[in-house]
Amino acid sequence: MDRAKHLALADAAVTRAERLAGDAERYVTSHDPNRYTQVERYAQAGALWADVARTHAAIAAAMPETDTETESADA
């Protein structure tokens, strides 16, 4: 997996975490009697996706800008 793929996965995970945070916020303001259970579940899932995003971003940061296989094929 190359750097660009890790960055794409990080971006997708951030989007998912953001969506789950929005869902948690929606449940906080709802009149559903079980809202606190829902908020907790959405918040936990969002936190996990944020961790996934950070992990992919860290891997991408540690990788070279270009793929070595691509460089040797171009030479």
Rank of each mutant, 00 (worst) to 15 (best):
M1N: 12
M1C: 09
R3M: 06
R3D: 05
A4H: 13
A4Y: 07
A4R: 12
H6W: 05
H6D: 10
L9V: 04
L9W: 11
L9S: 09
A10D: 08
D11K: 15
A12R: 07
A13Q: 02
R16I: 08
A17S: 15
A17P: 02
R19Y: 04
R19F: 09
R19L: 11
L20N: 06
A21D: 07
G22F: 00
A24D: 02
E25S: 02
E25Y: 02
V28E: 04
T29L: 08
T29N: 06
S30Y: 02
H31Q: 08
D32W: 01
N34F: 00
R35C: 00
Y36T: 00
V39M: 06
V39T: 01
R41I: 05
R41E: 04
Y42R: 06
Y42E: 14
Y42N: 10
A43C: 00
A47W: 05
A47E: 12
W49L: 13
V52K: 11
R54P: 03
T55H: 09
H56S: 11
A58G: 09
A58R: 13
A60W: 06
E65T: 15
T66G: 01
D67W: 06
E69W: 12
T70E: 06
T70M: 03
S72M: 15
S72Y: 12
A73G: 07
